[in-house]
């Protein structure tokens, strides 16, 4: 008999066992959200705008960062946290452009969480940085559930993936503060991606996020993205409260007992 499975409770001693129900009402991601709030405070103390980039694998997150560093490198000081299951490849691409990058290899984990980002921050001199990009693991499902302590979610959808992706992955696209329809140079070659339809699918998730169409192969298409970035840096500097669009409900609406 043991204290683990209840086999020590017999009809003779059952009156000595008390059963009770405890009401809890806390978010299941409470631990993650606690560390995320800590990360966000840390970013704000150092005046760093933290942007979480999410998309399927191969939608062009790293290429967009390369083009952004190329264009804004003299104007904004940037750093990157790269999340992948394996390899240092993406961090090396960023470092080759003279920008500090920390690679997180998650092994089998399909997403970054606030603890991983917290650990990566130990290797980063935040005082020298205006914008920290956190390039999440390529995945349209899991990363949407984890607050990292960042300020905005930017979700890429490359035009070769199909314009109905927001309807197929609603949790991810509902969380987006900005949607970038990437690889738009392919629009000429494919006839089944309608940028208006993609935007309509985003609206049908009750999401008012701007939807921009761009391609790193067409530098003049990147202007609105750069403007969004500049405006976000200014907004943070002015002390505007910036949280990613979908905050964990439990933490904000239901405080524990």
């Amino acid at each position: 008999m043991c204290d683990t499975c209840g086999c020590n409770v017999t009809p003779g001693n059952a009156h000595l066992v008390d059963k009770k129900t405890v009401d809890v009402l806390t978010n299941l991601l409470q631990e993650n959200d606690h560390v995320a709030a800590h990360n966000r405070e840390h970013f704000e103390r150092h005046g760093v705008l933290a942007v979480n980039l999410m998309s399927s694998p191969g939608s062009g997150k790293t290429s967009l960062l390369e083009a952004t560093i190329e264009a804004l490198g003299n104007e904004l000081s940037m750093a990157v946290i790269e999340g992948d299951l394996e390899t240092e490849n993406d961090a090396e691409r960023i470092r080759a452009r003279g920008v500090p990058a920390v690679q997180i290899t998650t092994g089998q984990a399909c997403h970054l969480d606030a603890h991983m980002v917290h650990d990566a921050l130990h290797d980063m001199a935040l005082d020298d940085i205006d914008v920290l990009f956190i390039e999440n693991v390529g995945n349209l499902v899991c990363p949407a559930s984890f607050d990292l302590g960042h300020h905005a979610n930017v979700t890429l959808l490359s035009v070769t993936e199909g314009d109905d992706k927001p309807a197929k992955y609603p949790v991810m696209f509902r969380a987006a503060d900005l949607v970038l329809l990437s690889k738009s140079d392919f629009l000429e070659m494919i006839d089944d991606f309608d940028t208006n339809r993609a935007e309509r699918h985003v609206r049908e998730l009750a999401n008012a996020a701007p939807v921009l169409t761009l391609s790193v192969k067409r530098p003049d298409s990147l202007g609105p993205w750069f403007d969004w970035l500049r405006e976000s840096v200014i907004a943070l500097g002015e002390g505007r409260v910036m949280n990613p669009r979908v905050q964990p409900e439990g933490a904000t609406l239901h405080s524990g007992p």
Binding site: G6, H15, L16, V17, D18, K19, K20, T21, V22, D23, V24, L25, T26, N27, L28, L29, S145, R203, E204, L205, A206, N207, A208, V246, P248, E249, G250, H254
Partner: peptide, 23 residues
């Protein structure tokens, strides 16, 4: 129209636990 607030459906909550304690 799509300009709506979601009032239910995003919850990820631990509501309650039934515990056994020795008296």
């Amino acid at each position: 129209e799509w300009q709506v607030d979601v009032t239910e459906g995003e919850e990820l909550l631990l509501l309650s636990l039934d515990l056994e304690t020795s008296l």
